[in-house]
């Protein structure tokens, strides 16, 4: 709790305490924590003097403002039609095999979360995915194995 309090106060000092500061603050929490806990949301509501239900409403509106615990690396595979036709299913199968989790889950060591996402805008280079903020395109089974092994080595 004290760390969250500090983080939120720091973000509010940086972005301000008006309603329009809400989104940058929530994004700031995501950058640091990968998800926004109920403690964090309560703290934001207190800091900005707005209702906790409204902060929760804003967070749940945006897919990238997760309110459920996420791993250190959040992998988001594009589920939209072009990537699907380019073989996103095999990519997901490979990832599930490599990480030993299903879509929507987080590894036991809390390092990886596997999710699907709507269009990333990389249709011409599908299948595409994000790991945190980094984009990976034209994925193949070999390529994905290499990328994940790389991440695993550098944890």
């Amino acid at each position: 709790m004290p760390e969250i309090k500090e983080l939120v106060t720091g973000l509010a000092d940086k972005h301000g305490r008006t309603r329009e500061s809400l989104l940058p603050i929530l994004q700031g929490i995501i950058t640091e924590e990968r998800f926004i806990s109920d403690d964090a949301l309560t703290e934001v509501a207190r800091e900005l003097d707005i209702s906790a239900a409204l902060v929760y409403g804003t967070a749940t509106f945006y897919s990238f403002l997760d309110t459920k615990p996420r791993g250190k690396f959040v992998i988001r595979i594009c589920r939209t039609i072009t990537c699907d036709m380019k073989g996103k299913k095999q990519i997901i199968n490979t990832l599930e095999d490599l990480l030993k989790i299903r879509v929507g889950e987080t590894t036991k060591d809390k390092n990886f979360t596997l999710l699907e996402t709507n269009c990333l805008g990389w249709c011409h280079k599908g299948p595409a995915m994000l790991i945190n903020d980094d984009v990976f395109t034209e994925l193949t089974e070999d390529k994905i194995t290499e990328i994940i092994r790389d991440y695993m080595r550098n944890i």
Partner: peptide, 8 residues
């Protein structure tokens, strides 16, 4: 504001 709009 005990009630708000959540999700989309």
């Amino acid at each position: 504001s005990a009630l708000g709009v959540a999700y989309k």
